[in-house]
């Protein structure tokens, strides 16, 4: 590689090229008129805006080619605003480009580094200041100041403590208990196995006591999907098979990846799909993950029927539902 070669020489700034409007009064007048027209158009835009605001009803829909059915109020307000703003902008830029002096100017740069003498003086002043405060000598003050400054930062941190309760075992619990009835969502009706045909899916929630209110927090952990297959379709361990009832199997609807609702069931393949990141769970094999980023199957809820023939939970979930967390043990 060659270096330190003689560069070509810099020919310097090219001569300034004049515009039509600089010398030709006609071109100048024309540019002036164009700028004024643009500013005038802007005023028209504002008037359109005002008129639309007052006279076009909020719920009027019109058909516009390409856009389809469009809210007339919102469209004309927007166009009015767009015209009024755009034309001011275009006018100003056109004015600058055609009529304002456009001679290139050269300014010099200066190095940012302060001159040596000033740097020396600064160091001296800083040292003198520090000496005057005696930080170097008074190590007792220095240390205690360090301690107090370090500690004082704790107070605002501590103040944040009451942002929320400690998690405790909260993430591991749901409202499902032994014998809790499954009720439809929406509808809140208890269901019998006969309500579900083979191939059907239903979203259910635990039945609440009359005095309890269902919150989004509950739904976020309690939502369960029921799917009915033919019993011979299952490929489950005997234990898990005992958790199903007449071909009905129940899984937490809250994705084991990041907690979205696992909402799509494909009847043909018997796959459950989470639309968030497409984790796919194989229903006959206890919701084993067959695709996507989820690392665990959806937790299965053991179900059976009560004396009246309604579907109930055999027992609570045996593992936490939803996304993983540090304290989760499996």
């Amino acid at each position: 590689m060659s270096h330190e070669v003689a560069n070509l020489s810099d020919p310097g700034l090219p001569a300034h090229v004049h515009r039509a409007a600089d010398s030709d009064p006609k071109a100048e007048k024309k540019a002036e008129r164009q700028v004024a027209t643009l500013f005038g158009l802007s005023a028209v835009g504002t008037i359109l805006f005002i008129v639309s605001y007052i006279y076009i009803p909020l719920d009027l829909f019109i058909f516009v080619p390409i856009l389809g059915s469009t809210n007339a109020h919102q469209l004309s307000l927007g166009l009015g605003l767009a015209i009024s703003l755009l034309c001011i902008g275009l006018g100003a830029v056109h004015w600058a480009k055609t009529l304002m002096p456009d001679n290139e100017v050269i300014a010099q740069r200066h190095e940012f580094r302060s001159p040596e003498s000033e740097r020396k003086e600064f160091v001296a002043a800083a040292k003198e200041g520090a000496n005057a405060a005696g930080l170097g000598r008074r190590s007792l003050i220095k240390r205690s100041l360090g301690l107090s400054l370090g500690l004082v930062g704790l107070s605002p941190l501590l103040l944040l403590r009451d942002l929320g309760p400690l998690p405790g075992k909260e993430l591991e619990k749901t409202s499902w208990k032994t014998g809790t009835r499954l009720v439809t969502d929406p509808g809140n009706r208890p269901i019998k196995p006969s309500d579900l045909e083979v191939g059907a899916v239903a979203q259910v929630l635990p039945q609440l006591n009359p005095d309890e209110e269902r919150t989004l927090n509950n739904i976020g952990k309690d939502a369960v999907l029921l799917i009915r297959l033919r019993v011979e379709d299952f490929q489950l361990s005997p234990e898990r098979l005992a958790w199903t009832h007449e071909g009905i199997i129940a899984f937490s609807k809250i994705c084991s990846h990041m907690g979205c609702a696992v909402a799509l069931y494909e009847q043909q393949t018997k796959h459950l799909l989470c639309p968030c990141h497409q984790s796919t769970f194989d229903v006959p094999r206890a919701a084993k993950v067959i695709f996507g980023p989820a690392a665990r199957p959806l937790p299965q809820l053991a179900i059976t029927v009560d004396t009246e023939g309604y579907l109930v939970a055999q027992k609570p979930f045996t593992e936490p539902v939803g996304p993983s967390f540090w304290e989760r043990s499996s």
Partner: peptide, 19 residues
């Protein structure tokens, strides 16, 4: 003038898209 005008152009384009 150019920078000020350009602000209005950006605002105008945003308003147009929103309309």
């Amino acid at each position: 003038a150019k920078a000020g005008g350009f602000f209005f152009i950006v605002f105008g384009i945003t308003a147009f898209l929103s309309a």
